[in-house]
């Protein structure tokens, strides 16, 4: 049977999106990044290459890092998505320790890669709460940063894991 509705949970909010063309609907060719940014207005997820090479659009799907520009939204029915907007405490506004650590270390310059970096790091820490520096570097190796904030990013992630132990 053809399904005409996509159920998505994004940052704890449930969305029922109709499949079709026009405002507020999910076109079968829409990528997850397009739906997040253009349909749901969650522009914290950044697009850069729009081709799966740069990691800028990384979000969590059921806790794991995925490239939202490489997934069709219609493939994501029933999935739980976390974007950069969903990391801080929704009630208190308190930042995730990773976010705070990025601020403390100035682990960004232009800041365009930061949402993707943080989401990749978050996926790593979900899986491995106490990674080695080599594991952090490997986990972030799909994230393009042209300012070269990598060193400060690795330090920020390691520092955040230390706090979590």
């Amino acid at each position: 049977m053809r399904k005409h509705q996509i159920n998505l949970t994004v940052n704890s909010q449930v969305y029922q999106l109709e499949v079709g063309t026009g405002q507020g609907r999910v076109n079968p060719s829409d990528t997850l990044s397009f739906t997040l940014r253009e349909t749901l207005g969650l522009t914290g997820t950044k697009l850069s290459c729009d081709g799966g090479a740069c990691g800028g659009c990384t979000v969590l799907m059921d806790g794991e890092a995925v490239l939202s520009c490489m997934l069709l939204t219609i493939e994501c029915d029933g999935k739980i998505i976390t974007t950069i907007e969903g990391l801080k405490d929704a009630k208190t506004g308190e930042l995730d320790p990773l976010q705070q650590s990025f601020i403390d270390h100035t682990a960004f310059q232009c800041g365009y890669c930061t949402p993707g970096m943080i989401m990749s790091a978050k996926a790593l820490l979900n899986e491995n709460p106490a990674p080695t520096e080599a594991e952090v570097k490997k986990a972030l190796s799909g994230n393009f940063c042209r300012c070269i904030s990598h060193y400060q990013v690795v330090r920020a992630v390691m520092d955040a894991t230390g706090k979590g132990r």
């Binding site: 940014r37 950069i84 990025f102 601020i103 100035t106 943080i118």
Partner: peptide, 20 residues
């Protein structure tokens, strides 16, 4: 060391770049 005043927006996805 003084935290960047735009830091909170950068790490929460609140920074509005041109396409946002």
């Amino acid at each position: 060391v003084v935290p960047r005043s735009d830091g909170r927006d950068i790490v929460t996805g609140g920074t509005l770049f041109l396409n946002d």
